[in-house]
Computed example of a mutant assay.
Amino acid sequence: QIRKEEPDLMPYLRPDAKGQVTLEYNMDRTPKRVNTIVLSTQHDDFVKPHDGMSQAQADRLMQEKISEDVRRIVIPRLIEKYSSKVQNLLDDQVRYLINPTGRFVLGGPAGDTGLTGRKIIVDTYGGRAAHGGGAFSGKDPSKVDRSATYAARYLAKNLVAAGVSDEIKIQVAYAIGQADPVSIYVDTYGRSRVRETDGEIASMLSSLFDLRPYHIIKSLHLEAPIYRESSAYGHIGRTPRVATKSFTDGNGRTLTKEVELFAWEKTDLVDKVRGAFHF
């Protein structure tokens, strides 16, 4: 937001950036405190060696400035968006690692390229949830690596929003050439709010949402031109919205289409879930 909308605040920012927040947890899986915040951002070469200054000294001045701005500008803006309960997790013992490797001028594909593809954990839950490992990039929605991940997210988000559990993991497995899942697995981590067991919740999911690939694609509108927006900033935790897209077809005609972005983030299944669990 600062880089794109308020560049005067931190004018040296460049697009390549990585962030990580490490939490300490209580034994009941609830967050206790923020332990470490790591933030590395690509930046302009905004301090040049001069008057006998070495490159290492110039790099250190840049790192100190970035660290100061992150603590003074970024962290207060971030934390004010949250409730006091969340704010209290951030105490004066938090360890900040801001550009810990130092100079970060060369970034993007020029500085970090290879053949491994997009990091799927970054595209989804950041290591918070188990993942099958199938990538999104380059795959159309007929591949369950992509479509079933969206469906599982959609179901999990709606079950939590409906009050079935404070936390839930949903795993779906398929066999090639067979439309119905061969396995549906649910883990509520002991935080369920309903009388049904995790196994019974799993057996109810197919009645809440059709988990055959064709129906996932149709229900979540996955054949529409929606994937450009997910090529950066991840696929999970985004805000669903409607957008108007214009593009040229194979005959050179310009077509305009209204599409639904990040439909798997909607919570429009809540009433149906509550009905199924007799809330």
Rank of each mutant, 00 (worst) to 15 (best):
I2N: 03
R3I: 05
K4N: 14
K4R: 09
D8E: 13
P11I: 14
D16T: 11
A17D: 08
Q20G: 10
Y25W: 11
M27A: 14
M27K: 15
R33N: 12
I37G: 01
I37K: 04
V47M: 04
K48F: 09
P49F: 11
H50M: 14
M53R: 04
Q55S: 12
Q55R: 07
Q57T: 06
A58E: 01
A58W: 10
R60P: 04
L61R: 12
S67E: 12
E68G: 12
V70Y: 10
R72T: 05
R72N: 04
I73H: 02
I75L: 05
P76C: 11
I79E: 13
E80H: 12
K81L: 14
K85E: 09
Q87R: 13
Q87V: 06
D92K: 14
V94A: 05
I98C: 03
P100F: 13
G102Y: 10
G102F: 08
L106A: 04
G108W: 07
T116C: 15
T116Y: 15
G117E: 04
I120T: 08
I120V: 10
G126R: 01
G126P: 03
G126W: 02
G127N: 05
A130E: 04
H131C: 04
H131T: 07
G134V: 10
A135I: 10
S137T: 15
S137D: 09
V144P: 03
A148Q: 06
A151S: 14
A152M: 09
R153F: 07
A156T: 00
L159K: 01
A161S: 03
A162H: 05
E167V: 02
Q171A: 05
V172Y: 02
A173K: 03
I176R: 10
Q178N: 07
A179G: 02
S183G: 04
I184H: 02
I184Y: 00
G190V: 07
E196K: 03
E196L: 04
G199I: 04
E200Q: 12
A202Y: 01
A202C: 11
L208G: 07
R212D: 01
P213V: 09
Y214F: 13
H215Y: 15
I217N: 02
R228N: 15
E229G: 13
Y233R: 11
H235C: 01
R241N: 05
A243L: 07
T244W: 01
T244Q: 10
S246N: 05
S246G: 05
D249Q: 08
R253Q: 14
T254G: 10
T256K: 13
K257R: 11
E258G: 11
D268H: 15
D268A: 14
L269T: 13
R274C: 11
G275I: 14
F277T: 00
H278V: 10
F279E: 02
F279V: 05
